[in-house]
Amino acid sequence: MENMKLKLRIWRQGGKYPKGQFVEYPLDGVNDHMSFLEMLDVLNEKLISQKEDPIAFEHDCREGICGTCSLVINGYPHGPMQQTTACQLHMRNFRDGETITIEPWRSRAFPIVKDLVVNRDAFDRIIQAGGYISIDTGQAQDGNAIPIEKDQASHAFDAATCIGCGACVAACPNASAMLFLGAKVSHLAQVPQGKVEAETRVQRMVHQHDVEGFGQCSNITACEAECPKGISVEHIARLNRQYIASTIGSEKVAN
């Protein structure tokens, strides 16, 4: 389809719209081979040519791996197609004449920068709290010194595949970041190198999660449904297990 007509209902905030509101933009001549973000590019070029302020939205790699894009499209983080980031979503998944509503991630911990752009520094701070293995460059032993069972390595990978986009928070009715947090805790808890400081890690990361003002998980699993990498809530269970064990079943007192 060469010439789709769309009605875009886009959240604008900042500049002309200090409090934030939806603004409607009709857009003609949309090609169904376009990616969703290319469709927004076309709209922005049109706005610029009319000397209007273009819509701010974040994006970078446009191949589904950097985790920068962050649009809630018709209510779905990254749009209605599952296991697909907004940048990999194409217009052939929409109908001619459709009204598309585009909103930013909504979470108290992700304040809006402008329009559809939010600040996700909270995720960095969660990782800084303990989402790493304490090893300095050059200290490592040979890579094959510790064998890791193939399936185990693969499970660790399933968690490590997180792109840090924040769709889990955006999707969660409680705006909880447990899937993001659980993915990192689970990844590092499943490799022998990460087990050494697993107890401290989970304590510190959960604490940071709470400080940032994310909500509490009630096992709704919307996060898994919207996660572009399909990360399972099984990793949240492992996080819970780790946290409970590191508190109740450990002599260590977290600080």
């Binding site: 790493y132 090893i135 050059g138 490592a140 890579g143 390595a153 660790a156 990978f157 990844h187 190198q193």
Partner: peptide
């Protein structure tokens, strides 16, 4: 070696 020690799967 370094990457394995960092937990790269």
């Amino acid at each position: 070696d370094q990457a394995v020690a960092q937990g790269v799967p």
